[in-house]
Design a protein around this nucleic acid. Structure first.
Lengths: 214, 214
DNA sequence: CGGAAATCATACTGGACAGTCTAGTTTCCG
DNA sequence: CGGAAACTAGACTGTCCAGTATGATTTCCG
């Protein structure tokens, strides 16, 4: 029948699976693992509970898939941030300030914060999953940042970096420590003022370049 | 009777209240807010459930008291760390390295990490409590660090700091960003190696002093 | 068309848990 | 001593929820 004819490039089952995945992401991020209910997931996905359990063995597995799936998105996101701010840059200070801003912007987005809260909250309950999330997501993205910084060295904008990953952590720490802690601990209420972020980014880059300028 | 005669400088009720408080701290830190059960608190405190509810109106209030009570302890702890490493120091590099170590040591202790996980996890459910914890604990301790750094300026070991709190955040970010994130996200399993902490602290101080040495 | 597979709505099971209630015991203090 | 207040053990209520079961309906595909 025509009314029920959805465009369906991947099959009904796969479509529902994706709906469940999306709904579960939302529910887990909002309520945490224990606070999330499978009934709510099913309802939000527009699917019966039975279908949820057909696609995902149980609540734990669903959680694991949700969490690990977020890493791909993040990696792409950061890769483009590095590319857009550093590739082709001619001035280190300007490029790093732009990068700092991008990082602050991306990583204080609500859903990013909620995900980080979720992973941290469940780090003891699901050490394998959260550990995997950390190494394949967080750590990897800092290694990538380290490599991006070495490209600045290659172009004569920074001095030689003996341990690019450590330097990347230093940059991230200078830029993110203050706003990230506030965002994580104090809830997602008041956003930091752009002028404050501007100050933080500028001063962070000042300190960074005092050590690492070419 | 003699056998039941405990030394009791504060009254029976107060003693039990403290036992409940201690037990609840343990249970909340271990299982999170939703995972904690009032029955377990009562059992661990060696007290009946009724007594728990006589001392603390309900689970939410108990949680709030537990969380906010941790700040006093932390403040004292950090104040002595600043005093012991900075007061009377004559060499900035040496003093700051010692401070960095102390911070890493204190703040990656298991119960500190569990507390931070708890606060972060419940930041959305209890925004007032967690927000208060953050401003009166975390932020305040960084302001204190800022003041401690200005004492180094006063003694000619660092240059003038126009915004000591921001500089304190930079120091903390350089020192703690990497090990703290790992500890928070990846669970409380493997401790970072002391040699790695040593490297991090040394390099952090190098960068810090490149900008802020006298 | 027609049967198999997927899905649906809904009800159910079993267990956990916050918070209350009761009835009996212990402790304190005048 | 004696009564009031604190405390205890344990049962109980109401709710929520993971996961399963059932029986009807829809979709897919040969």
């Amino acid at each position: 029948m025509i009314s029920g004819m959805e465009l369906n490039p991947e099959g009904r089952t796969a479509t529902k699976r994706r709906a469940i995945h999306a709904a579960a992401t939302e529910v887990f991020l909002q309520h945490g693992y224990l606070g999330a209910s499978m009934d709510e997931v099913a309802a939000k996905a527009g699917v019966s509970k039975q279908t949820v359990y057909k696609q995902f063995e149980n609540k734990e597995r669903l959680f694991a898939e949700i969490v690990l799936a977020t890493n791909d998105e993040l990696a792409v996101n950061l890769a483009t941030a590095y590319a857009e701010t550093l590739d082709g840059a001619t001035d280190a200070r300007e490029a790093l300030r732009a990068l700092a801003f991008r990082l602050l912007e991306s990583l204080t987005a609500d859903h990013v914060l909620q995900l980080r809260r979720l992973v941290i909250a469940e780090a003891d309950r699901f050490p394998e999953v959260c550990g995997a999330w950390f190494t394949t997501g967080f750590e990897k993205s800092l290694e990538t940042l380290g490599r991006a910084l070495t490209t600045l060295t290659d172009r004569g904008l920074l001095r030689e970096l003996d341990d690019p990953t450590l330097v990347a952590y230093q940059f991230a720490g200078l830029v993110m420590y203050k706003p990230m802690n506030r965002a994580m601990f104090a809830g997602t209420r008041e956003r930091p003022k752009p002028t404050e972020l501007d100050t933080i980014a500028t001063r962070a880059v000042d300190v960074f370049l005092a050590s690492y300028a070419a």
